[in-house]
C-alpha cells in the first residue's frame, strides 16, 4: 500500500509540473504569459523564467526526495531507523543554498524594478514647471472612476505652470477618450494615474504594467512599447488591426466595486508617430467638430473611430 501513496504523491506533483510544461510548450492553448509588447515586459518575462528555473530545480529536488523516501522507507521495510537528531553541517548547507538562490533572484530583480519604477519617482516633473517630464514623448492622464478609464491626451504643448496644472485643468483642446490607450512603438510614454473615487489598478497585461491608482495621489508610470498591433487608416478614418490581430486589453486589478470586472479598455500601439498623429488629428477633428455634416458620413461605420468621438 505504501507504494500506492508514494505513487500518488509522485503522480500529483508530476501532473502539476506537466500542466506547467504543457501550458508553456503549447502557446496555442493560450495558457501562458500573454504577448509581451514593452521593454519592461521582456525583462519581467526573463526574470519570471529565471525564478521558474530555480523553483523547478528546488521543486524537483525536494519532491523527489520526499517521494523517494515514501517509496523506500515504509514501516514494512527491513531494519530500523537510526536515531539521528541533526547535523550542523547539513543545516548550514541548506540554509546557505536557498539563500544563494534567493540572492541571485534579488540581484536580478533590482535593476528591473529600478527601471520600471524609479524613473521619475519621486516625480520631479510634477513639482516643477517642466512642460514635459524629462525624456517623455507622450503624456497621458489616466483617470479611473467607477467604472471606466478616462484617458486625457495632451494635444498641444503643456501649460507653463507645469504638468500638474495640465493634469488638474488641462487645455480645451485635449482629447479625452474612455478606455482607449493609444501610443506608438518606441515612444517613451509617461502615464499619470489618478482616480476620483476608490482604488483601482491600471493593468495592461501586454505591457506587464500594473499600478494602483490612489485617491488623492497622482502616480507617474513609464513604459515603452516595442511591438505595434494597429495602424491608423486615414482613408477609412479608423484604426485597423495588424494581420496578427493582437487585441491587447486593459483591465482593473484592484477590487473597485461590483462592476470591477467591467473596467475593460484596449491598448493600441501604432507602428510610428505618423500613424499616431494621424489618429490623434482625426479624433480631435471628430471631437472638436462644430458641424454635423463633418461627422455624419462615417457616423456608424466603425466603432473604433466612434469611440474616439467624445
Amino acid at each position: 500500500m505504501h507504494r500506492f501513496w508514494s505513487l500518488l504523491f509522485a503522480a500529483v506533483n508530476m501532473a502539476c509540473l506537466a500542466l506547467l510544461v504543457v501550458a508553456y510548450a503549447y502557446p496555442g492553448l493560450g495558457w501562458w504569459l500573454p504577448d509581451s509588447a514593452s521593454t519592461q515586459a521582456n525583462e519581467i518575462d526573463s526574470l519570471f523564467y529565471l525564478i521558474t528555473g530555480l523553483c523547478a530545480f528546488f521543486f524537483v529536488a525536494t519532491q523527489g526526495i520526499l517521494i523517494y523516501s515514501l517509496w523506500r522507507f515504509p514501516s514494512t521495510a527491513p531494519g530500523s531507523p537510526s536515531p539521528i537528531h541533526g547535523h550542523p553541517g547539513l543545516e548550514i548547507g541548506w540554509t546557505i543554498a536557498p539563500l544563494v538562490g534567493l540572492l541571485v533572484i534579488t540581484a536580478a530583480s533590482l535593476p528591473v524594478w529600478k527601471e520600471a519604477r524609479y524613473q521619475g519617482f519621486p516625480p520631479p516633473a510634477l513639482e516643477g514647471t517642466n512642460p514635459l517630464p524629462p525624456e517623455a514623448d507622450q503624456v497621458i492622464l489616466v483617470t479611473a472612476r467607477q467604472w471606466d478609464w478616462h484617458l486625457k491626451y495632451a494635444t498641444e504643448s503643456l501649460p507653463a505652470e507645469g504638468i500638474r496644472q495640465w493634469a488638474s485643468v488641462g487645455n480645451p483642446s485635449d482629447l479625452i477618450i474612455a478606455n482607449e490607450l493609444h501610443v506608438w512603438k518606441g515612444a517613451k510614454v509617461s502615464l499619470l494615474l489618478r482616480t476620483t473615487d476608490v482604488i483601482h489598478s491600471f493593468f495592461v497585461p501586454a505591457l506587464r504594467l500594473k499600478q494602483d491608482t490612489l485617491p488623492g495621489k497622482t502616480i507617474p508610470m513609464r513604459f515603452e512599447a516595442t511591438v505595434s498591433n494597429v495602424r491608423f487608416d486615414p482613408a477609412e478614418g479608423r484604426v485597423v488591426p495588424n494581420e496578427t490581430k493582437a487585441s491587447w486589453e486593459i483591465a482593473c486589478a484592484e477590487l473597485c466595486g461590483g462592476n470591477h470586472f467591467r473596467m475593460r479598455g484596449k491598448l493600441f500601439v501604432h507602428p510610428d508617430r505618423k500613424s499616431y498623429d494621424a489618429w490623434l488629428d482625426h479624433s480631435r477633428r471628430q471631437t472638436r467638430s462644430r458641424s454635423l455634416t463633418a461627422m455624419l458620413p462615417n457616423a456608424s461605420s466603425s466603432n473604433q473611430k466612434e469611440g474616439a468621438l467624445q
Binding site: 467607477q146 467604472w147 471606466d148 478616462h150 477618450i177 474612455a178 478606455n179 482607449e180 462592476n259 467591467r262 473596467m263 475593460r264 479598455g265 484596449k266 466603432n303 466612434e306 469611440g307 467624445q310
Partner: peptide
Amino acid sequence: GLHGTSMPAFGI
C-alpha cells in the same frame, strides 16, 4: 457612457 454618472463607456 455618461461621464459624471456611473454609466461606463462601452465603445470598445
